[in-house]
Simulated scan of single mutants.
Amino acid sequence: MADTFTDNFNLTKPEAGKVSWDTDYAALADLIDSRFMMAGKNAIINGACQVAQRPAPNISGSYQYGKVDRIAAKADGTPTAGTISQSETTLLGSSGYASHLSGVSTGAGGAMYWRYRIESRDVQRFISQAGIFSAKVYHNVGSAQNFTITINKANAKDDFSAVTLISASGNLSVEDATETAIEFAVADLASCGNGIEIIVKCDCGAVTTKDFYLADLQFEKGNVATELEPRPIALEFAMCQRYYQQYGEGSNEMLGTSAVHSATTAFVIIPFQTTMRTTPTVTYDSTLSNYLVRISGSSQTPTSLNNDVITPRTMSINIGITGGTVGDCCFMYSPPADGISGLIKLSAEL
């Protein structure tokens, strides 16, 4: 047992018999290791698939993050239809939510993939330890399908552009229209401290408007899968925002406030809701009319939007305006009510 209790609090284990709780020391240290130091035994954030900030994108042959936060997906076989969505379903999972590859059609060589990455800071306790990944899956292809689980490690800290295989499972057969628990244990995760990547694959072949579900993702120490450990939704949401945040989901949603800098320039400051993993990449809507700037009692469409200063905690936007008066207060807001247009997207994903 790694002595996380003494290591982190600079304490010395008491001698036997000196204090009444000595016989429970191991249990206490394990409890602190799994519950306090890591906010739970499960190293996967949003394993219950409840947090879903993004719109559901169309599935493609390249990994992209879908509606369920922290889970990326793709399809082989040149997909022609389907989305990376979220399902509220009683088909599987303890929470009733799942990452849903919905209505997918592919050609020959079709296969579905889900990918999850764990950053370096959260895998230190797994170095040279046994670890096990577990999840629940479901599909409606019409016959039993083989699923596999692959566990890789990043070659550089939090950089998954190159990875090395740790281990891969054999085929895990999943019957049609049947909730199935799958798992894969690795006896020694070795030098995985740069980060861990987990890939779940369904080797389905060509399909037409079929559905694939993944739920109850958990990665924990040891070689025995345990029941999914739930987190309060408020905590789960904040943990997801370390990697992705977006602003402007509702009609007339405030984006940020500041002041006019010149007749043609204003700056708006947006403090982030959670400190992000690293300085995020910012994406604006391509249609400027999906944003409005309010200055001196009237609104106008910005003529341009450019990043000014960005940190993991806040950002300022250089906004092109007309007829500004230096020092006037201004604020930026998103007028569309569709929850998709007028977004400011911040990504610090791995």
Rank of each mutant, 00 (worst) to 15 (best):
P232R: 01
Q218G: 06
F133D: 00
K136R: 14
D22M: 11
G66R: 02
V186A: 05
K13H: 10
P55T: 15
A185F: 05
A185R: 02
G324Y: 02
G47M: 06
K153H: 06
A16F: 08
A259F: 15
P232T: 00
A215S: 04
S298K: 02
P57C: 07
M332L: 15
R115C: 13
V137H: 02
T301Y: 09
N155Q: 12
F331C: 12
R294F: 13
T6N: 05
S105A: 05
I149G: 00
F160K: 04
F133Q: 01
Q245R: 14
T209S: 07
D76C: 07
Y284L: 08
A168G: 11
G107H: 02
C204P: 00
G40P: 13
V163D: 08
G142Q: 04
C330I: 09
P271V: 03
Y138P: 10
V137T: 03
L165Y: 02
G77E: 01
T311F: 04
I317Q: 08
T4Y: 12
F160N: 05
L217I: 04
Q246L: 15
L31P: 03
K13D: 07
T80F: 01
T278G: 11
A39G: 11
A259T: 15
D188R: 06
L350I: 14
D159E: 12
T265S: 13
S105R: 06
Q53V: 13
M315P: 09
A206I: 02
V19Y: 08
T83F: 07
L288G: 11
Q245D: 09
H261I: 15
V51L: 10
E220W: 02
A39D: 13
S161L: 12
Q273D: 15
N318D: 14
M239V: 01
F184W: 00
Q50G: 10
Y116P: 06
N306W: 12
I199S: 01
D176F: 09
R54E: 15
S102R: 10
T4V: 15
N42H: 04
S120I: 03
K221Q: 13
N223F: 10
C202I: 06
L288Y: 11
V51G: 11
R117Q: 15
N155Y: 09
Q124K: 14
I198T: 01
H261E: 14
I71T: 07
